[in-house]
Design a protein around this nucleic acid. Structure first.
Lengths: 202, 202
DNA sequence: GTTCGCGACTGACATTTGTCATGTGGAGTG
DNA sequence: CACTCCACATGACAAATGTCAGTCGCGAAC
């Protein structure tokens, strides 16, 4: 009884290589491949795989978004997320989206195959190191608005512009920015943006 | 007569998968693998490969830095850079460092194998799309100091700190930042940093 | 060999920020 | 009901930042 897989990653080289390696395992069979979020969704609908192995960063819709859609459309399909940059916040979001596994690309193919089986069996698997990071990073201390404003500040826009886009008074924006920076222990809002990004809080 | 390869990528999964795929080609043989810049250098010294396939982003020293060192230490070893995010400026830097090939990870393994042979034969290969981007992005309009200061400003440090680290007066720093922002068409230095990053000018 | 353009560099000034004190009203909890 | 937390707002002051006008030295152009 083999496990039917969907493989999604925008990097052809990696997807192909991965497909080849996983195909070597007798009990794993790749039924579909995709290079973007929407494509992954379409492929999943068409082939109803047992396990979907998704890259976190893909054009169109990221792995977590795809996982959310899959959850409702194909409840029988388990999702395993693979990523290069393991930001703590992403792991949390992924878990909330019903993802069953979360691993960095630093694991070996052998190990990945085992994890696919684990996930297929209905168990969860989260990389221990990422889990430790996520726990030590904790939850985001930012309130909804703070995070919202911080996000608008992400591309270096001046306060006035942020205020307009958020339909807030400039003073309020400054306050949110200031309190967000304080909570994150950052010197200024730009450093705060960086930190929040690193921790996956934006 | 087979081509002896060094494979360097910090993502074990990808490196392993790639190794397996390239090993399928009769004329390619992987003599060494590395997971970081320094390790790649050490491996190259120990095994003197014909072609070094390097990931652009690696811990320790990036692909371009490794290529530079390799150039002088092992002139017979051709360098091929593989990358996920093809920023125009990186291509330029890579070429200046004597790299013979530059491809995105979106190519297929089959294609990569061909490119490895091309590079081994002494020819150059640059992905056409990346080349087009690099040409359309053009050269950096920033002067040496402007780029230098902009880089120091990258993590959101206040002007005073940048001034110290660059051994400049705060006023001068502000001017460089200001002129850099103007040249890049940015509202402020933070947006400028983002733009310069995107174009690979920092 | 003077003129011109340009990059390195500086200080002064106006604007944009970060910070703080303070206030209102609503939602949730004990 | 009192208490707390959050969203939202204002005004004022200090610090950081952006902008400008201008100096100096150097290599290229004429």
């Amino acid at each position: 009884m083999s496990v039917r897989l969907l493989l999604a990653d925008d990097e052809h080289l990696i997807r192909g290589a991965l497909a080849a390696l996983l195909a070597l395992e007798d009990d794993l069979v790749i039924v579909a491949e995709a290079a973007s979020g929407p494509e992954a969704l379409a492929m999943a609908r068409a082939h109803a795989p047992d396990v979907a192995v998704l890259d976190l960063q893909m054009p169109g819709a990221d792995g977590v978004k795809v996982a959310t859609s899959l959850r409702s459309e194909l409840p029988g399909c388990q999702v395993l997320i693979v990523t290069s940059h393991g930001r703590p916040g992403h792991l949390k979001r992924a878990l909330e989206a019903g993802v069953r596994g979360f691993v960095p690309k630093t694991v070996s193919a052998q190990r990945l195959a085992e994890i696919i089986r684990t996930v297929h069996a209905g168990n969860r698997y989260v990389d221990p190191e990422l889990a430790a990071d996520a726990i030590s990073a904790g939850d985001s201390p930012l309130t909804t608005r703070e995070a919202e404003v911080l996000e608008l500040a992400a591309d270096g826009a001046p306060v006035a512009e942020i205020a307009q886009r958020a339909a807030l008074s400039p003073g309020t924006v400054r306050n949110y920015l200031s309190s967000a920076a304080t909570k994150l222990g950052a010197e200024n809002r730009h450093a705060a943006v960086r930190l929040a990004r690193e921790r996956g809080w934006v």
